[in-house]
Nucleic acid binder design. Sequence first.
DNA 1: GCAAAAGTGTTATCCCTACACCCATGA
DNA 2: TCATGGGTGTAGGGATAACACTTTTGC
Lengths: 206, 206
Amino acid sequence: MVFTIRDQQLQLLLIRRGIPPHEGCWAFPGGFLNIDEDLEICAKRELEEETGLRDLYLEQLYTFGRPDRDPRERIISVTYYALVPSNRLELKAASDATDAAWFSLDELPQLAFDHNKITTLAHQRLVAKLYYSTIAFQFMPETFTLSELQSVYEILRNEKLDRRNFRKWILAQNLIEETGEKRRNGNHRPAKVYRPRNPDQVEIVC
Amino acid sequence: MVFTIRDQQLQLLLIRRGIPPHEGCWAFPGGFLNIDEDLEICAKRELEEETGLRDLYLEQLYTFGRPDRDPRERIISVTYYALVPSNRLELKAASDATDAAWFSLDELPQLAFDHNKITTLAHQRLVAKLYYSTIAFQFMPETFTLSELQSVYEILRNEKLDRRNFRKWILAQNLIEETGEKRRNGNHRPAKVYRPRNPDQVEIVC
DNA sequence: GCAAAAGTGTTATCCCTACACCCATGA
DNA sequence: TCATGGGTGTAGGGATAACACTTTTGC
């Protein structure tokens, strides 16, 4: 499944199913493993085929295999989740799936299969990883301001953070650096622009 | 895979393979999923068939599916790990596997398939969970002394801990209680005996 | 009485939290 | 000039870390 931060909310990308079972229902992008295809390769391939998104942070979530989770036949789903930076939200027009859209986690529709339950697990994992890894950067563009980064933490943790304390904390970790530029963004003082020191790397920081 | 604390070491249970591929090599207990069998049920069944162990803490670790991980055919392994309390180390005599034995993590032999790599991942997960859950109790018998519990933490964290601080910390969490008994165990003062307040429950303590 | 592990408190340090004012810009 | 978010430091409290002596038992 695919998450992003959009409209100041954590949002999930859903595909409207064009075929039974659960035809017309919203569900995760995904599909079947080719013989001799690696699991992660398969997840990336399906993601790109259905949404046009590629080169995202991707992590295996869990493997679900209850015999009754698909009404027709035995399906085992090795689930992955991906994170999309907020500057890459454009979806491929007219994918082979009939429809694709972003949904706020707070107002998800009824999803196909056990996908609501899986969403809950992924959400928990994501929030947990905020606290001991640098996963939040995966939602950010190459460069960002501290306010933008703080906003991502606030949305995922679902609480306001003190600006001074957040800045002290994030800078003390030494994971981001100033680019030297400033970003003007409205009728107020421009903000310093930062970038990760190790882009694309999700570190465990304890 | 199955872990325990034995001889003051973290140890892993291995089965000597009686059939190709890798015949004669040490490997994890495990086997193939029956049609219409839940994944976790399967893990429990295979564990009991090969070792006689049941009712253990069991957790899904990861799903491995590289096409080349089994030399003969495409195998996808949904791996689980189990923890054995130190008073339940007796293995079923003469299982259908030719041989079963405990190995220290520090001196593992060359294992079949990618099992060495999987062991590393499981070890990391286990140590990480020490810090934010009550998983350590799953290595303990129903009752134990604080020194015994501290020893489990020391072995997994691979460092000595201060006795007074450990006791303050573990008691402050209010997860264990005195049984009222004492345990004499050598020529020294007897130790108070404790038990978990919520046995068999692994809590996330943050 | 001696060896060996159990049991017990206090102090210092570090980290996290709370909190308010000035700055630079666009309108 | 005014509204808006950007930028900055300090003090207090709570948690963690360091540290040594007494107790109970078996031999």
